[in-house]
Amino acid sequence: MKKSIEVCLTPALLNLYNIEDSIVVVIDILRATSSMVYGIDNGATAIIPVAQVEDCLAYAKDGFLLAAERNGEVVEGYNFGNSPFSYTAEKVSGKTVVLTTTNGTKALHMARATAKQVVIGAFLNLSALCEWLKVQDSNILLLCAGWKDNFNLEDTLFAGAVVNELSKDFVLSDDAGVAAEDLYLMAKDNLRAYINKSSHSHRLAKLNIEEDVKFCLQFDICKAIPVLKGDALVTMSS
Rank of each mutant, 00 (worst) to 15 (best):
E210N: 14
E165N: 01
K188D: 09
V53D: 02
K3Y: 13
A159C: 09
V53E: 11
H109R: 15
N152D: 08
C56E: 02
A205S: 12
E131N: 15
G72D: 07
P226L: 12
F85D: 07
V162I: 14
C130V: 01
L172S: 08
L99E: 03
G146R: 12
M236K: 14
S86F: 00
S35G: 01
T88H: 07
F219E: 13
A205Y: 08
L30Q: 11
L133I: 00
A67F: 12
S238W: 14
D55S: 03
N15L: 05
V163W: 14
K61P: 06
M36G: 03
V135A: 06
G177N: 10
P11E: 01
V98T: 02
V37D: 08
N164T: 04
E211T: 13
L108V: 15
V227T: 07
G160E: 13
L124F: 11
S83W: 04
I23Y: 05
I221T: 12
V227S: 13
A12P: 05
K95F: 03
L228K: 05
A161T: 06
K229W: 13
S201P: 04
F158I: 10
A46T: 04
E154K: 02
G104R: 12
D55G: 00
N152S: 08
S83D: 00
I209V: 14
M1I: 07
C216R: 10
D28F: 07
W132L: 11
L9A: 09
L99Y: 03
W147H: 04
I209K: 14
M236P: 03
A145D: 09
